[in-house]
């Protein structure tokens, strides 16, 4: 069975709605990526060094990251030799296969699941640099969890940025979820502490903790974040159950530095990739997974409350190759 067929089967297991979200949300990405690959394949009849060089450029232009691209190209070259592929048409399938492979590695697909405490309170800490969409992500996540029947509480841990608390409160109203807050300038660790106590006494299932955006090279601010995390771990054993790093999909190679430093400071467990709908990129997902081992748990594919999707690498690659896959299967 060809890889495209397998991919298609995987996709078919999921609801059409989700597939469509990925497909429309990633239109830009796909148009860009697929047309480039198609164009490349059309121009080269045989797979040679120049072909790979151009492919390398296409992948780099998708922000996949130089190191991962080099690795990928090397593997592709080997695979092409091994399978004795001469025709460029066939390479398309190998490319998408390798992309999924690089993403999952030896791990199960369940790496994309949110690991929550089934009985009792789960704490989710949201971290990231300025302007990536942390507060919006929390709003969307609160909506989604509530739809699943969970009782959610939000803690307004961004006490620094002007208007951040109000922004979270608006989301609280929209989704009908309680927001625990202090005033601007308060100690974020204290807010989160109160959030935990309130969530406990209200019998909540999930506490989502907002934090102020911070650039990863600000030592002081990163220490503050470690403190917040320690407060959570001290109050509830095994918490935070998830520490999600929110990344802007338009970010380039600096996303790697972000992942690395935030992981050191807060033991990040997963990534939320926002603003994927507007960008022609998102390739950094592969680099982060490949080089840092961090899985993507959610992607933001639009401005609506319902536009936060659980990530799925099959969907992502299908989003990249879309029509290629459909054509391939029909043939």
């Amino acid at each position: 069975m060809g890889f495209f067929k397998k991919l298609k089967d995987k996709i078919n297991d999921q609801t059409e709605q989700v597939t469509n979200k990925f497909k429309t949300g990633m239109t830009k990405t796909r148009d860009n990526f697929t047309s480039k690959v198609n164009d490349l394949v059309a121009r080269y009849r045989t797979v040679d060094e120049e072909f790979f060089e151009e492919l390398e450029e296409i992948l780099i232009s998708a922000d996949v990251g130089v190191e991962t691209v080099m690795e990928l190209i090397e593997e592709l070259e080997m695979e092409v030799k091994r399978r004795n592929i001469k025709d460029t048409e066939q390479v398309k399938e190998v490319i998408s296969e390798k992309l999924v492979e690089i993403y999952y590695g030896d791990d199960e697909e369940s790496i994309e699941e949110l690991s929550l405490n089934e009985d009792g309170l789960s704490v989710v800490l949201i971290v990231g640099v300025n302007g990536v969409g942390k507060t919006t992500t929390i709003g969307k996540l609160a909506y989604q969890l509530k739809q699943e029947g969970k009782k959610v509480v939000l803690a307004a841990g961004d006490t620094f940025r002007a208007g951040a608390i109000e922004q979270l409160e608006v989301w609280g109203e929209r989704t009908g979820v309680d927001v625990i807050k202090h005033s601007e300038g308060a100690d974020p660790a204290a807010v989160i502490y109160d959030g935990i106590q309130a969530a406990k006494s209200r019998g909540a299932d999930v506490l989502l903790c907002d934090t102020a955006g911070r650039l990863q090279n600000k030592v002081n601010l990163m220490k503050e974040l470690s403190k917040v995390k320690n407060v959570i771990s001290r109050e509830i054993e095994g918490a935070p159950h998830e520490t999600l790093l929110v990344l802007d999909a338009t970010t380039g190679q600096n996303a790697m530095a972000q992942a690395k430093t935030f992981k050191e400071a807060t033991d990040v467990s997963g990534i939320v990739l926002t603003k994927l709908d507007g960008t022609a990129r998102g390739g950094i997902v592969l680099a982060i997974r490949n080089e840092m081992g961090l899985p993507v748990k959610f992607v933001g594919l639009g401005e609506q409350m319902t536009d936060l999707q659980r990530f799925n690498a099959h969907q992502f690659v299908y989003g990249l190759f879309g029509d290629l896959v459909d054509d391939g299967v029909e043939e």
């Binding site: 640099v129 600000k218 338009t250 380039g252 950094i284």
Partner: peptide
């Protein structure tokens, strides 16, 4: 920190609004 897409963003804002200047943020990162 914008990646490869910076070009497209700048190009389309400029095309549609004829931008007169750019401010680069978060350079302290």
């Amino acid at each position: 920190m914008t990646g490869q897409d910076a070009v497209n963003v700048a190009e389309s804002f400029d095309e549609q609004l004829d931008v007169t200047g750019v401010v680069l943020t978060k350079l302290d990162g």
